[in-house]
Measured scan of single mutants.
Amino acid sequence: NKASVVANQLIPINTALTLIMMKAEVVTPMGIPAEEIPKLVGMQVNRAVPLGTTLMPDMVKNYE
């Protein structure tokens, strides 16, 4: 099973992601793959992301 990106803390709306906000975890359903973490740094979330939430592509602005 591949790990996904999971919020390590509450991430407020429009916050630019940093490494300490994210962790890799095997979850179902899968979200953004953990190997994308370096690419996510500096990208903004378009909603508040609660602690423990799996990051999905539609939660990150301009994620492709």
Rank of each mutant, 00 (worst) to 15 (best):
R47M: 08
V5C: 03
L10S: 07
K2D: 09
V60I: 04
L19M: 08
N14S: 07
V5N: 01
N14D: 14
T18Y: 09
V5T: 06
P12F: 11
K2E: 11
V27N: 05
L40C: 03
A34W: 10
I37Y: 05
M22Y: 01
S4I: 02
A3M: 14
L19G: 11
K61Q: 13
A7W: 00
T54D: 01
V60F: 09
I13E: 08
E64Q: 10
I11K: 00
N46K: 10
M22W: 02
K23W: 05
T54K: 05
T54I: 05
M59L: 09
V60Q: 01
L51I: 09
A16R: 07
L55T: 01
P57M: 15
Q44I: 07
A24E: 14
L19P: 07
K23H: 12
N62C: 03
V49A: 04
N14L: 05
T18H: 07
V5G: 04
K39S: 05
V41P: 03
M56A: 08
S4C: 02
T54Q: 07
P12Q: 10
P57W: 09
E36L: 07
P38H: 14
M56K: 14
L10G: 11
M21R: 09
T53G: 12
E36P: 01
V45Q: 00
T53C: 03
L17E: 00
N1M: 13
G31Q: 07
A48S: 06
A48G: 07
K23V: 07
A7D: 01
K23E: 08
P12R: 09
A16G: 03
K2Y: 15
L19S: 11
M21F: 08
P29K: 14
P50Y: 07
T54A: 06
E25P: 02
K2H: 13
L10Q: 14
E64P: 14
K61A: 13
D58Y: 13
R47W: 04
K23N: 14
I13G: 10
P57C: 03
G31T: 01
K39T: 05
I13D: 10
P29T: 09
M59S: 12
L55D: 00
V27Y: 05
I13V: 06
R47Y: 15
P38A: 15
E25N: 15
M22H: 00
A24V: 08
A48D: 05
T53V: 15
V60Y: 02
A16W: 05
L17I: 14
T28F: 15
E64K: 02
S4Q: 03
V6P: 00
N8F: 13
A34V: 12
S4L: 01
N62Q: 13
L10F: 10
M21T: 08
P38C: 02
I20D: 09
V45F: 02
P12I: 14
N8P: 07
Q9H: 09
N1Q: 15
E25D: 06
M22A: 02
T18K: 12
V27F: 03
N62G: 10
V41K: 12
M56W: 06
P38V: 05
A34G: 09
T18R: 15
T54L: 04
L40G: 00
L55Q: 01
K23P: 00
A48I: 08
M43H: 11
V49T: 06
N14W: 06
I20T: 14
G52T: 03
T18I: 04
K39C: 02
A34K: 05
E25A: 09
R47V: 11
L51M: 14
V5D: 01
T15F: 04
E36R: 13
V6T: 13
L51F: 14
V26R: 05
A7L: 03
T18V: 04
M43I: 08
K23Q: 15
M43Y: 07
S4R: 03
G31C: 02
P50I: 08
P33S: 10
N14Q: 14
A34S: 11
P29I: 05
I37Q: 10
R47T: 06
P33Q: 04
